[in-house]
Amino acid sequence: MLIASEDELKRIAKFCVALYRTEKIIQSAHIASNLLELIVDLWLEKQNVPDSKEDSLYDKINKLNYSGLIYSQSDLDELRLIRNKIVHGYKYSSDNIYYILNLVYFIWDGLDNESYLKCDTEIKQLDLKTAYIWIRDFEVIDTNYFEETNRTGIHSGSIKLNDFNNLYKMAEKFTELANYISTKKELTKHSLSVDNISAINSTSAYVWLAITSGNHGGRTKIEFASVSILATPDNLRIYIDFGGKAFDDRRKYLEFIKATNTTMLNIEDKEDLYIFDIEWYSYIENKVDFNILDDKVKKNNKISSAKKLFEDNGDRIPLASNRLLIGYILQKQDLSFKKILKKLTNIISVYHHFQTFEYERAESLKINRKVNSSGEDIVTKQQLNSLIDKYT
């Protein structure tokens, strides 16, 4: 009988693999030992095989139908014996670590085959940065209050100065804020919805609340642009953000920034409004005045630098950096939800401009579509200039 969903098992499996990759072999081995039986349970459930609380792992392996599996019964029996040795105090050395690795590979392949194949089925091909991200994503306290609790709509109406000193408290305030803004017309008229609040632990540097478009078919804030509210112990930001895997949206956003100016965005409330860069998810660098959007030379220099950063990273490793983000940076202070919503409305407008630009750019390409040898769209200079002229 499964005690966790398949998505939860995948998350645990990635944690297990990341621990092995970062040389925490014993921890990885014990997690893999527990996951082995859970994978067998998952397969039995998918095969509609009745389970029994009295069944041992040996019994469950015997019940499996192997016709649709790439593993044989003898494969699983061998892994079961490795699992038993680990559970009963298996001592690993350079001579027998191979057996633990085999178990970890089975867990990885069985629960997250996509990333397993991307790394060419070799754990050493897993980028260390990605491994640490998987560990960080697991070692957290779940703060998904918006989905699970506080549905009454009752809220304190503000973030207090002292809330910045305790991110657990800030996460609670974010759940209240999420409920406050989720039904406001500023979101509903653009078909926007509040995503989960980021999970935190004692080493977290921020709390993040993302608002995303409903047009992404359930894909997450990690893969697309979002309107975001993020708090650190120093400040609160309301801004356009891009998740680690939002590779395409980052590139499109740079074209949008190149084409836009302050007149087009028409934001009256420019107090605390900046263009800024981010390193390692939340650290602000190169904060400049919003009016840089009207300085084509400075703006284009920053765009060129951002393009090089994104190209050097490629589309395989999640990005921890962002460039030329438009948003408000409010230093720690008492902040009413009404004030936050007012500034949020302006950033939603920027997000809407970006989405419109992206859509019309795609439509323009359809009119006179050209592709390269790989079948990818080529934006001609004439097409791009016509878009820039339209928005400037």
Rank of each mutant, 00 (worst) to 15 (best):
T22Q: 14
T22C: 15
K24E: 13
I25L: 11
I25F: 13
I26K: 07
S28P: 12
S28Y: 11
A29E: 11
H30D: 13
A32W: 06
S33G: 13
S33L: 10
S33V: 08
L36N: 06
L36H: 06
L38T: 07
D41Y: 07
L42I: 01
L44W: 01
E45F: 00
E45T: 07
K46G: 09
Q47H: 09
N48K: 03
V49K: 02
P50Q: 05
P50H: 05
P50I: 01
P50W: 04
E54A: 13
S56E: 12
L57E: 04
D59M: 07
D59K: 10
N65L: 07
Y66G: 07
Y66H: 11
G68A: 08
G68Q: 10
G68Y: 06
L69N: 09
L69M: 14
S72H: 04
Q73E: 14
Q73P: 06
D75N: 09
D75T: 00
L79K: 02
L79H: 01
R80D: 03
L81A: 13
K85E: 11
V87Y: 06
H88Q: 11
Y90I: 03
S93P: 05
S94A: 10
S94E: 13
S94P: 01
D95C: 02
D95I: 05
D95F: 04
Y98V: 15
I100T: 07
L101A: 06
N102D: 07
V104Q: 07
I107Y: 06
I107H: 05
I107R: 05
W108E: 04
W108G: 02
D109V: 03
L111C: 12
D112E: 14
D112G: 07
D112K: 08
E114P: 00
S115L: 10
Y116K: 09
Y116H: 13
L117V: 10
L117I: 12
D120C: 08
T121K: 11
E122G: 07
E122Q: 14
I123H: 02
Q125R: 13
L126K: 02
L126H: 01
D127L: 10
A131S: 13
Y132M: 14
Y132A: 11
Y132G: 09
I133M: 12
